[in-house]
């Protein structure tokens, strides 16, 4: 800007820029609108309809008798024999699987962060369980790995002199947890590995020069640095595992204490054909998820935003 420019010319220029920005901003809204519209139409609006469904007496076998019954379905849900065991199954299976995959993921992240022969190949092999179609993973684990007669896990137990275990029927909860842990360990590992790689190597080296042992360095420097990454892993892992349906439908069909909320809803709506009650279960599932997610998300949202900042 030159000193000879008159104040009015400056003002015009500022106005022009503001006008240009307004146009850009309008364009920007137009660019976001389709995605936003699409998303609202197919997720938020159906959810409102689900809430409406949950106030109806509606069994698909008697489609003529749909009527408004207020909160009666919720009364059935909360006083019925299925809800509490199901909530417990969901919490137990999700909680244990998240913790176990986080611990194993941490172990693998630390091991695969070292330089060693074939590290690239080892990483590639390690991420594979997460890529395997869950339906295929459930079948392979159910039959090839955990089957009481021909499963490889039982072959291994036999080799060390232990009796075979009928995992699918005797330990259904463990079966589901084993599968989820196997599938999500690579997920946790990837996130923690990204955390390890973003660590300042010089500081770690300085610590070891100053005589801090590897355990102390890990405990007091690496672990605090990884905290944020662990939180992201736990949050996203819980959200995904809360919704896990495939292993339960394929391995146990909800027997033996594995009837999670996701499976219960499916059973009520598409086997029991009770739409009203299923909708009530759906709403309750959403509330449970929101309780889990909001607390974590509120504190973590800034982390996500930072990931996309300059």
């Amino acid at each position: 800007m030159t000193t000879t420019a008159s104040p009015t010319a400056d003002a015009t220029r500022i106005e022009l820029r503001a006008a240009a920005n307004r146009v850009r901003s309008r364009h920007a809204r137009l660019l976001v609108a389709p995605a936003l519209f699409f998303s609202i139409a197919l997720t938020q609006i159906p959810f409102l309809v689900t809430i409406y469904f949950s106030t109806l007496r509606w069994n698909q076998l008697r489609p003529a008798e749909i009527e408004f019954i207020g909160l009666d379905n919720y009364a059935v849900v909360f006083t019925g024999p299925d809800f509490l065991p199901s909530l417990w199954a969901t919490v137990l299976i999700t909680g244990t699987s998240v913790i176990m995959s986080l611990v194993l993921g941490m172990l693998f992240a630390v091991l695969l962060d070292r330089r060693f022969l074939g590290r690239g190949l080892a990483r590639t092999l390690m991420i594979t369980p997460f890529l395997v179609m869950p339906a295929a993973a459930a079948l392979i684990w159910k039959w090839s790995m955990l089957d009481v007669n021909v499963g490889m896990v039982n072959v291994a137990l036999d080799a060390v002199g232990l009796p075979a275990i009928a995992w699918n029927t005797d330990l259904p909860i463990a079966t589901i947890i084993i599968l989820l842990t196997w599938q999500y360990t690579p997920f946790m590992m990837l996130i923690l590995l990204a955390g390890l790689q973003s660590q300042n190597r010089e500081v770690i080296e300085a610590a070891s020069v100053d005589g801090a042992g590897p355990w102390r360095t890990f405990r007091y420097m690496t672990l605090p640095h990884l905290r944020q990454y662990m939180e992201i892993g736990v949050l996203l892992g819980s959200i995904m595992m809360l919704q896990a349906f495939d292993p339960i439908a394929i391995m146990t069909k909800g027997t033996g204490g594995t009837k999670t909320l996701a499976y219960l809803l499916y059973e009520r709506a598409f086997i029991g054909l009770d739409v009203g009650e299923a909708a009530a279960f759906g709403v309750v599932t959403v509330v449970v998820t929101i309780v889990v997610a909001t607390i974590a998300l509120r504190s973590l949202f800034s982390v996500f935003v930072k990931g996309g900042e300059r």
Partner: peptide, 15 residues
């Protein structure tokens, strides 16, 4: 957008 990712399918599957 991030919250729709956390809305379980259970929320919308019936409608």
């Amino acid at each position: 957008f991030i919250s729709t990712r956390f809305l379980p399918v259970a929320a919308s599957i019936l409608p």
